[in-house]
Simulated scan of single mutants.
Amino acid sequence: MTKAEQGGIQRPPIARWFLIESVVLVVVSLAFLFKSQVAGYSALLGGLIFLLPHGYFAFKAFRYSGARSARQIMSSFYQGEAGKLILCAILFTMVFKWIPSLDIAALFLSFAIMLVTNWLTPLLAGRRTQRS
C-alpha cells in the first residue's frame, strides 16, 4: 500500500514537474530564437530566472514530511519562499547589469510563461499519475 492509500500525504513529484518545466523553457527559447538570437537567449534567461529560484524553493520546502515535522515544514516553506524571492531579485539584477544586449519583452514574456506553466504542471502531471 502506498502512503496515499494509507491516508498519508505523498510528496509531489518535484523532479517530474521540474523536467516538464525545463522542456517548456527549451521550447519557448527555441521559439524566440526564430525571432532573433538576442530574443532567444533573453527568453532562456527569463525562464532560468524563474526556474532556478523555484528549484531552490522546492528543495527547501519539501525536505521534511510527516505530521511530526509540521513545525520544520512550515519553517522550510517560509525560508524557501524568502530565498526564492531574493534569488529572483538577484538574478534579474545580474541580467540587467551584465547582459549588454537584451530583448526585455522576450525576457519577461518567458518568465510569465514559466509562471503559468508552474501553475498548470501539477494539474497536467496529476492526470497522468491518476490514470496509472
Rank of each mutant, 00 (worst) to 15 (best):
L87R: 01
A58C: 05
G7V: 03
S65H: 12
M1T: 09
L109A: 11
T129Q: 15
L48Y: 06
L33V: 01
L33Q: 11
A125N: 10
P12M: 13
S29C: 03
T129H: 11
N118L: 02
E5W: 00
R131D: 07
I104E: 09
L102I: 11
E81T: 03
W17L: 09
Y78N: 06
T117A: 14
V24E: 13
A70S: 11
A82P: 01
G66H: 06
L109E: 13
S132I: 06
L33Y: 14
L85I: 12
L124M: 12
A61E: 14
A67P: 03
G8L: 15
P13T: 04
M1H: 09
P13H: 09
F34V: 03
K60A: 07
V26N: 08
V28D: 14
E21G: 04
T2F: 04
A105T: 13
L48D: 08
G40W: 10
E81V: 00
I49N: 13
I20K: 05
M94C: 06
G8P: 00
A61R: 02
R68P: 01
G40P: 03
I14E: 12
V38H: 06
Q10T: 05
Q10I: 01
F96P: 01
T117E: 14
K3G: 12
F57D: 09
L45D: 09
L102G: 04
A106L: 08
S101N: 11
M1Y: 10
Q72T: 03
R68Y: 07
S101D: 15
A31L: 14
Q10M: 06
I20L: 15
L30M: 10
Y56C: 01
M114E: 14
A4G: 00
A89L: 15
R68G: 12
A125I: 11
K84S: 05
L44M: 08
L33R: 07
L25H: 05
I90Q: 08
L19S: 07
K3R: 10
A125Y: 09
G47M: 04
R128N: 03
I14G: 01
E81N: 08
M114S: 06
Y56T: 01
L85N: 14
D103T: 00
R131I: 07
L44Q: 01
